[in-house]
Amino acid sequence: MARMKFLCDAERCIECNGCVTACKNEHEVPWGVNRRRVVTLDDGVPGEKSISVACMHCSDAPCAAVCPVDCFYTTDDGIVLHDKDLCIGCGYCFYACPFGAPQYPQKEAFGVRGKMDKCTFCAGGPEEDGSQAEFEKYGRNRISEGKLPLCAEMCSTKALLGGDGDMVADIYRERVLKRSSRPQTWGWGVAYKADS
């Protein structure tokens, strides 16, 4: 069984935001919610790096651990999904997630946020596959159609990869070998710059 994962190659990402747009369009994501975002480090400075971030579908998902109504489930291939009919919009998952993946469509009086929304790896939710109810709540279910997440499939530089983690790792390993060095995007040198 595959273990589905996203990986963004920061050496390739050109901050085109195509993945963000594709996601919003494919799932008709409501205003104020971005299931995927592109984060740029040192924006405007030569050598800037960008990375596309969404739900990372954690193996030991903290959102699921803190949910008081147990609305999260993980598929056998590692996709973390949730049931919006159970969600009470408490926001615990938002605080627990290190990637800021869970988001809420409303901002009303008394802290009413609405049902939590996040990246589904284009796998919909617990409604009938391909149904209108599923589309309205979770967006399109591309996985059931035998397709992979649109953000990764349409990435023009193939920076964003989404699929079986082993296959993603193979591709990335080959790239690193071709570059003959590890990626210089992260590490002590980036975190603790000489001039800071």
Binding site: V69, C71, D129, I143
Partner: peptide, 22 residues
């Protein structure tokens, strides 16, 4: 998990579906 069962789970268990995604 306390919600309804996702029909996708059964579909993903099918090796043909996995091969298609690969």
């Amino acid at each position: 998990y306390r919600g309804t069962t996702d029909p996708l789970l059964a579909k993903q268990a099918n090796p043909e579906q996995q091969a298609k995604l690969a």
